[in-house]
Computed example of a mutant assay.
Amino acid sequence: MYRSVPFSQPNSKKRGFTLVELLVVIAIIGVLVGLLLPAVQAAREAARRMSCGNNLKQLGLALHNYHDTFGTFPPSAIWGPGDPPYTLPYHHTWNEMILPFVEQQPLYDSTNRLLPVWGQPIVEAQVAFLRCPSDGGRWELSETHNIAVTNYAGCEGYHWWETGTAGNSAPWNTFGDPITKNADIMGLFTSNRTRRMSDVTDGLSNTLVVAETDSMGFGGGPIRTVGTGARRTGTPVFRGAFVAAGVNGWAGNEGGGQRVVNPDGTPKASNGWWKNHVYPPTFISAWGPNADWPGPSSYHPSGLQAAYGDGSVGFLSETIDYGTWLKMTSIKDGHTYNDPRN
């Protein structure tokens, strides 16, 4: 006769984590997140930079298509009738003129170029490909006087006016053989004429035509320097996409002898600024990347992107040699340089 023996059940009481173990796990997770976060941020910035590069590529191709259609590149702006007495301004920009070539024909058709642009809906039309996704500055129209912002500005070259002079000091000494004609160091976009491909004697692939300008602007960097400024934290200097405000916010093309009132019809302010501080969608290369507001700038770390006359796009370091920068931004200075793009 067998005697039944009770089956022994294991102790089913569950053991929990101690406070020390829990803190260790949390600390490990925190370290892993800390290690992973920069990689995630870098990946996101790489994607934004690629999107920005595609925007610039569109602009470069649009400029070529415009040239194929009209035989010239667009002027920086259509100011309107000029010379005293002051007359009504037009202030249409080159961004508006290339709209049919970037699948924006309806917006182009909705605008009357025989009338002043101020007061027309296009002034506040925000077009996605004209904004860099890395730009963390002004996006709301309420922050920019109801003027749509662009992050891409056409290159005017070293000086605003072809008739202006830069003196006999640097930057020409950087080249080793000083340049005496200011027209030699002008860019693709000017205030009083248009350019043809044949005018770009340095070669389209060697000539920078459009660069980034962020919506806050830089300040404090001396002229003829690169990477010496800091992003403005107060009132921004931004580029209006579809309204040209003139140099320093002035009303019109005064350097070319043309004098008009402000885009809204009011007289030019004594300090030059109109709608504090809107600027036309152009830049001058007297200041290099991330130096001061007349030059280009970007929210991309350590530099900016630019489009060239042949439609190619590249990234430029904010520490680029200034002499190289100046050669890149002129259409016929006759100098060569080592390509700094990456």
Results as ranks from 00 to 15, higher is better:
Ser142Ile: 01
Leu141Cys: 09
Trp139Leu: 12
Pro89Asp: 13
Leu115Asp: 04
Thr87Phe: 12
Gly119Arg: 00
Pro89Cys: 02
Arg138Ala: 13
Thr144Trp: 03
Trp118Glu: 06
Tyr108Phe: 14
Asp109Met: 05
Arg131Thr: 08
Phe101Cys: 03
Tyr90Glu: 06
Gly137Ala: 11
Cys132Glu: 14
Ala128Asn: 11
Glu103Tyr: 02
Asn112Ile: 06
Pro100Ile: 06
Arg131Phe: 06
Thr144Leu: 06
Glu103Pro: 05
Tyr108Met: 05
Val127Asn: 05
Asp109Ser: 01
Leu115Thr: 13
Ile122Ala: 06
Leu99Tyr: 13
Gln105Met: 06
Ala125Asn: 12
Pro116Cys: 15
Pro100His: 09
Gly137Met: 05
Gln120Phe: 02
Gly119Glu: 09
Arg138Gly: 00
Pro106Gln: 06
Thr144Asp: 00
Glu124Thr: 10
Trp118Met: 10
Val102Asp: 05
Thr87Gly: 06
Thr111Ala: 10
Glu124Leu: 04
Ser134Tyr: 06
Phe101Ser: 13
Leu114Asn: 13
Pro100Met: 05
Met97Glu: 01
Thr87Val: 07
Phe129Val: 01
Asp109Cys: 00
Phe129Gln: 15
Val127Tyr: 00
Thr93Lys: 07
Pro100Lys: 03
Val102Thr: 11
Trp118Tyr: 13
Trp118Asp: 11
Pro89Thr: 09
Leu88Ser: 05
Glu96Ile: 15
His145Ile: 13
Val102Asn: 04
Leu141Ala: 14
Ala128Asp: 11
Phe129Ala: 09
His145Leu: 10
His91Ser: 15
Trp94Ser: 01
Leu114Asp: 12
Gln120Glu: 03
Ser134Pro: 14
Tyr108Asp: 11
Gly119Phe: 04
Thr93Gln: 08
Pro133Trp: 10
Ser110Met: 13
Cys132Gln: 14
Gly136Asn: 11
Arg131Lys: 15
Met97Thr: 01
Leu130Met: 03
Leu99Thr: 07
Arg138Ile: 00
Thr93Gly: 08
Thr93Leu: 01
Asp109Glu: 08
Gln104Arg: 04
Val127Trp: 05
Tyr108Cys: 00
Arg131Ser: 14
Thr111Pro: 07
Pro100Glu: 00
Gln105Gly: 08
Pro106Leu: 00
Leu99His: 12
Leu114Val: 14
Asp135Cys: 10
His92Leu: 01
Trp118Asn: 03
Asp135Leu: 02
Pro133Gly: 10
Val127Leu: 02
Trp118Cys: 06
Val117Leu: 07
Leu141Trp: 02
Pro121Ser: 06
Ser110Asn: 15
Pro106Ala: 04
Thr111Lys: 04
Gln104Leu: 02
Leu115Arg: 12
Ile98Gln: 11
Val102Pro: 13
Pro100Phe: 02
Gly119Lys: 02
Ser142Gln: 08
His92Phe: 02
Ser134Val: 09
Glu124Ile: 01
Asn112Ala: 12
Glu96Tyr: 15
Arg131Ala: 13
Ile98Pro: 03
Asp135Phe: 04
Ile98Val: 14
Arg113Lys: 13
Leu99Ala: 11
Gly136Ser: 07
